[in-house]
Amino acid sequence: MTIIDKYIIKKYLGTFSFMLILLSIVVLVIDVQQKIPRIENAKLIDPKLDLSYFLVHFYPFWIVNLVMTFLSILVFISVIYFTSRMANNTEIVAVISSGASFHRFAKPYLLTSVLIAGISLVVNHFVLPWANIKKNELEAYTYNARNKEKVLGTAPASAQLSRTEYIFVNSWNKAEQRGSGFIFQKFDKDRKMTYELKASDVYWDKDKKQFVLNNYLEKTINKDNSAKLGNGGELRKSYGHSPEELFPNELLGQNKTTPELIKFINREKEKGNSNLNTHLNELYQRTSMPISIIILTFLALSLSSQKKRGGLGINLAVGISLAFVFVFSFEALKVVSENKSMSPALAMWFPNIVFFPLAAYLYLKRANQ
């Protein structure tokens, strides 16, 4: 590794680290200021949920999630910034004039982007889910009233245990993990009901990992259509999964490492659940976003390695515009995928599919100049 390589890598990592710290501080201050009224409301529910508690138990993990979401964009803007300064100072001209090819000049960019992408892959697949567990325990308290009710409030819930077994709860409180109007139904291959269990109330026993049914009534339907009835005050049932697994919300996939998420998705497919695009988006994005770091590094290098009229300002303007398009396309394609208008794999890889040819074209064009 030459002195020039070390110089560029130092510039790359130094600028990236500065941008990372600056973004984290600015966004943290803005978000805290915005959410203080909601945090104060959370304190009315639980006195320990004050601002200091959130600063220790929520925001460090929230920052990890934020950084990993915008990591590729931070890399993109960082590369444009320090490469534009090198171009304006004629440092790149000096390197090329010394006999080094543009491909050789780009080598430290490749090495550094691969390093960051590799770390990002490990974090996305194994570390970020742990941070999300901590974050998601408190995140609902930072939502507005309507969205908080979706996560912590009471609503109807249902689950498909297999292709022939179903659970319905008329009113289920996700925070307290209890509800009313419980129904379990089992059908045969001809879609004829063979068993039904009803209960007026149900709650989840965390210690014994069982559902406790109160005032239950069960009915077994025989082949001759006769029915056997039974009832009682309390009945304990284990359906193989916790309420979080049976009645998942959109945050569940974020909390699982990739092996756990794949296992969960496969299990839901076996049960016949076809509403999995949110979790599939999470799965594919964990790989596509780190790969975009390499693509955007070379796109940024190609855009900013020549001295231009307007200098650093015009390069940053172009870079921020492209960054906005990149982020917006990911978020828009998530919605498209969740509406089942596009497969999750294609939706999460589509920005890379579009930006890769663009980066390759501009890079080769710059290298041949």
Rank of each mutant, 00 (worst) to 15 (best):
Q177H: 08
Q177R: 11
R178Q: 14
R178C: 05
G179V: 07
S180Y: 00
G181V: 07
G181C: 07
F182R: 06
F182A: 06
F182W: 02
I183S: 08
F184S: 01
Q185N: 15
K186R: 12
K186H: 09
K186L: 10
K186N: 13
F187Y: 14
F187N: 06
D188W: 06
D188G: 05
D188T: 06
K189Q: 12
K189D: 11
R191Y: 15
R191G: 06
R191H: 14
K192V: 08
K192A: 08
M193P: 05
M193I: 11
M193V: 07
Y195M: 02
L197R: 02
L197C: 07
K198S: 12
K198W: 11
D201R: 05
D201L: 08
D201A: 07
D201M: 07
V202D: 02
V202S: 04
V202Q: 04
V202P: 02
Y203A: 08
Y203M: 08
Y203G: 03
W204F: 05
D205G: 02
K206N: 14
K206Y: 10
K206F: 10
D207V: 06
D207T: 09
D207W: 05
K208V: 03
K208C: 11
K208Y: 11
K208A: 15
Q210E: 15
F211Q: 03
V212A: 05
V212G: 02
L213Y: 04
L213A: 03
N215I: 01
Y216F: 10
Y216E: 01
E218I: 05
K219P: 10
K219I: 15
K219R: 13
K219D: 13
T220L: 09
N222G: 08
N222Y: 07
N222F: 04
N222C: 00
K223L: 12
D224F: 02
D224S: 05
N225L: 14
S226G: 02
S226D: 03
S226K: 04
A227V: 04
A227M: 09
A227W: 01
K228A: 07
L229Y: 12
L229F: 14
L229K: 05
G230Q: 07
G230W: 00
N231A: 13
N231S: 15
N231R: 09
